[in-house]
Amino acid sequence: MSKKVVFKDLGAQSYKEVWDYQEQLLKESVNLKSPSNTGETPLPVNYFLFVEHSPVYTLGKSGKPEHVLINEHEREEKGIEYFHINRGGDITFHGPGQLVGYPILDLDQFRTDLGWYLRSLEEVIIMTIAEYGLKGDRSPGETGVWLDPDLKGKERKICAMGIKSSRWVTMHGFALNVNTDLSYFNHIIPCGIQNKQVTSIEKELGHPVSMEEVKEKLKRNFEKVFEVELV
């Protein structure tokens, strides 16, 4: 029988609100796994969250602040928030038209291998965009999903990823550009990678797509790859 994962679509929310919520879910799971919990304790609940954030730049723990190319005043003028956060990776953008997914999974219930986990997340995205006729690929040494990663000058990233893990419980996740306003990426060096483009499903197809449709496809592919049932 497949494992159950609690699915929640949080709609449109600010970044900090959802970051705090993830931290709360992570803490609950980690506490259940604490050595001080003797005897029979229930397994941590696994979650998969969807959200569309209001415009925000987030810088990973090892990221470089100079990869943000506009100052605080300019960010405020454009209504873009900014947070230095505790995931891996460098700078990225979240905003309307982008589907952000946050799996809070206890990998002890899956496989205690972060490489496997990230490749599995990438596979979910690759399968989802394939349903729109787009061939997603991995780029060696660069987490996320790309189009044409081997064609110099044509490489374009469609999905960024960055995670944190504590006692094998994950948080943060992926950001898939669906109908995203890509001009926001002009003010940063996305993921700290110079001279590579960012794209979206809308840009590649030449027309917007239904966010609800993308969500349904992604949920189905998440269930297949991780062998779970979303409830």
Rank of each mutant, 00 (worst) to 15 (best):
N46V: 01
L105G: 10
L151S: 09
W146H: 12
E202R: 15
V169W: 03
A130N: 14
T41W: 04
K33A: 02
Y57P: 01
P103H: 05
P208K: 10
R220H: 14
S210Q: 10
V198Q: 11
M211H: 07
K8I: 10
T41C: 10
E81N: 13
L107K: 09
Q24W: 04
S34V: 01
S36N: 07
G141Q: 09
F222C: 06
E212C: 00
K196G: 05
P208D: 06
Q98N: 08
G144D: 07
I163L: 15
L99W: 03
L118A: 12
D106G: 10
S29T: 03
E123Q: 15
K4T: 14
K154V: 09
L218D: 02
V198K: 02
T58Y: 05
G115T: 13
I188S: 08
V169D: 06
E23W: 05
E28N: 11
E142T: 02
I158M: 03
P35E: 14
M1D: 12
T170G: 07
M171S: 15
L107Q: 06
E204N: 06
H73K: 15
G39W: 06
K78L: 15
W116G: 05
V5C: 05
N86V: 03
Q109C: 04
I201P: 05
H94K: 09
E66C: 02
F50C: 10
L121M: 15
I201S: 05
L10P: 02
E227Y: 01
G39K: 03
G60S: 08
I129C: 12
K154C: 04
H53K: 08
A160I: 03
F174R: 01
S14C: 12
Q197E: 13
E17H: 11
G192L: 09
D108M: 00
G39R: 05
L25Q: 11
H53N: 09
R75L: 15
V231T: 14
K164N: 15
S200C: 10
E122T: 05
K203I: 00
S183Q: 09
G79H: 12
S183P: 00
I163T: 12
P190T: 13
E66R: 08
T41R: 14
Y21S: 05
I80N: 07
W116N: 01
N31I: 00
S2G: 00
Y15G: 02
G136Y: 01
Q24C: 06
Y82S: 10
E229R: 14
K157M: 08
H187R: 02
